[in-house]
Nucleic acid binder design. Sequence first.
DNA 1: TATCAATTGACCAACCTGGTCAAATTATAT
DNA 2: ATATAATTTGACCAGGTTGGTCAATTGATA
Lengths: 215, 215
Amino acid sequence: MYQTFLNLEVEKQHKIINSALKEFSINNYDTASTNKIIKDAKISKGILYHYFGSKKNLYLYLYEYVTTIFIDAINSRLDLEEPDIFKRYEQIMTIKLELIKQYHTFFDFLKKTYIETSLEVRSELDQYNLTLQNSSYDSVFAGIDYDLFHKNIDSKKAIDTIRWVTDGISDRYEERLKSNVDNSEAFNQLLEQCMEEANDYFQFLKQLVYKNTKR
Amino acid sequence: MYQTFLNLEVEKQHKIINSALKEFSINNYDTASTNKIIKDAKISKGILYHYFGSKKNLYLYLYEYVTTIFIDAINSRLDLEEPDIFKRYEQIMTIKLELIKQYHTFFDFLKKTYIETSLEVRSELDQYNLTLQNSSYDSVFAGIDYDLFHKNIDSKKAIDTIRWVTDGISDRYEERLKSNVDNSEAFNQLLEQCMEEANDYFQFLKQLVYKNTKR
DNA sequence: TATCAATTGACCAACCTGGTCAAATTATAT
DNA sequence: ATATAATTTGACCAGGTTGGTCAATTGATA
């Protein structure tokens, strides 16, 4: 499956993938148009169907492709030796924001797949997610030392709070970062600003929930 | 404008409004179909255009309609005498979740308007939002007593944290609540469970950031 | 030169779009 | 009962789109 496509030079593969991602990011599955994709990728209609067989196969191929790249990127960069949950979150946040720079179209596409409702693909997406779930989420937080929390602290609530604060700050910057992917200087400045703000909040929370810190 | 529409008995108005909201919630502005709307509302094509003049006018009418109802609902139920920010957030959350029960289609529609990009309507949405912004967000937090925070606490960070935790818990329940709008018993049970969880977290945070509380 | 894979794009039938308008129906006033 | 006015209908329009097919062309390989 997809063998003829994979025999293409990678640049041509990327061009097709990016055109398809763009179209599926703007529209939902049903309204996304294969005609727009081939026009943007400058390939013929016939060859797209030769590569992928159907619109559905193309879509599912993209989903596997994108998730695989993200999971690999995270796994390769995360330092599981770090026991401090704040530092671990700092890592996750940095990785995520840097991935935006390289792969911002992937984020848009993934966001759409979350809310995709078309009967044509929904169940396949869910099924594939199941096979991922086991491996991914838990391992990201392997090796965290929960004894760093003050003994009176409900660590579950503390962890939730840290996650929500992290997400909140991410959201605050995500859109602005996306619109600056082509301006390296502005992007890096924003990223630095974001991480600084995150660390401020981490310091604030650490002081509240960690041992050996004063109010 | 819209006078003939407003002369209709309210039930018929609601039927049309709900059909339109449904269609604009599933699709974006450009792909939403007036034909689907009239079919669902069981009215003729001509009369829809007699009422609203154009697809654009219909869409903007819906936006004004929905936001007005939400703002009125919040303003009428919020107790601005309550100085405790946790209790204020408890109120906001309760109001919001109860609004889901009555108006869950409104939420879906509003979510779509946030991300609507069609040139046909984007600028009009933004312009209308500007006229709202002044009046709404600030007044929701009027009368909060920031002296309740412990003196060493950065109250801005604390407030952000409270908001993010509130949103996090809301998100956790929102989808489940939406899918139970027609089952009053299950809905109320979920709502209760949600508020209980929220209060647990509020207690947790209060203990961390308020005066006169021990770790 | 012959074989086979890659690639093209015209073509298909089916369907949809926002909007119009002459005609039919219903309500109101005399 | 009649005339006028307001409401409502739905067939119709021209112009588009769609996912998918397939005979024909091109390019590579042996």
